[in-house]
Simulated assay, not measured.
Amino acid sequence: MVIPVHDVNPTRRTPYVTYTLIAVNVAVFLFMPGLAGSVAGDSGLAQACRLQAFLDQYAAVPQELIHQQLPRLVPTGETGVGPQGPGCVVGPPDYDKSPPLSVLSAMFLHGGWLHLLGNMLFLLVFGNNIEDRLGHVRFALFYLVCGYAATYGYALLNAGSADPLIGASGAIAGVLGAYLVLYPKARVWVLVPFLIFLPLRLPAWLVLGFWFALQAVYSAGEGVANAGTVAYAAHVVGFVAGMLIAWPLRPGTPPPPEPRGLLFGRRARHSW
């Protein structure tokens, strides 16, 4: 797996929506019970119960999305001792949950620091150019549409699952799909793990095509979509949705500049 760190594709305007999405994702993560606090070593049963209750309320659940069936009993966030020992207390939900709106909230939840930072890195590297091409408002709508398409696509393939689906990966996969369509020849600086991390400048079609191929292969044998596993099918659906939406924009998209005289991490001056 390669790690993108910078693309050679300058923008004309400041990507305010991309920066806002990153800021909101980080802020929400910091307020999630049981995840951000785990850095300090708080990983007990009480933390797990609070997290489970939080995800049941705000994460997207395939069974709820497809069948509109809400559970009669959910974790309350409290701990107790039952016949089988300590565990999470369950009871009737004390909240009203809208499954379609849970897709939106789930797009800003992450299962850990690596999950969050990986998603935000891809959004930072590739999102600015898609926002530059679409404009701020259309990019925000594009991001949401891809996220909804990815979540419902996964739910259709796992209609009986009651496991929570969280993360911005589906929406960001749509950004990657659009980038592949609009800027396939743009050069991307990546770190390739081979004994050490080797910096290479590769065309976007190779970087993103390889990423998509991996998601497609992994999706054939994926597990459930809770905080400890990866919903690869959602990535595939989001990526394809982004490609389809961006395809009509190809003729009017200016190509990226030729990467001449480039230094790692910055763009050298040219006399065009």
Rank of each mutant, 00 (worst) to 15 (best):
A216V: 12
P164Q: 11
A27Q: 13
Q63G: 12
L198A: 15
P199Y: 02
C146K: 07
W189I: 07
N158Q: 11
A220V: 14
D42H: 14
L182E: 06
P203Q: 01
Q68E: 12
L116V: 10
T18I: 06
R13W: 12
P92V: 03
L198F: 05
H110T: 09
F31P: 00
L156F: 15
V237T: 02
Y16F: 09
A225L: 04
L114N: 04
G167W: 04
L55F: 00
L202K: 02
F194L: 14
A231Y: 02
V26E: 09
N9T: 00
Y148E: 03
G135P: 11
R269E: 13
G209Y: 10
F197E: 12
N119L: 02
G228Y: 15
L21W: 01
A48R: 14
K185Q: 10
Y218P: 01
P184F: 09
V230L: 14
G44I: 04
A213L: 14
P71L: 03
V145P: 07
L123Q: 08
G80E: 06
W113G: 07
V28L: 00
F108Q: 06
R260P: 00
G170M: 03
F264R: 13
A168R: 02
L124Y: 08
P86S: 07
L191V: 00
L134T: 08
F139W: 10
L65F: 02
A106S: 11
G221R: 07
L191Y: 04
V240Q: 01
S169Q: 06
L191M: 12
L202M: 11
V207E: 10
T18D: 04
F197Y: 13
P15D: 03
P257F: 06
A36Q: 03
L141A: 15
A159E: 07
L124E: 07
T76E: 01
K97T: 07
G111R: 12
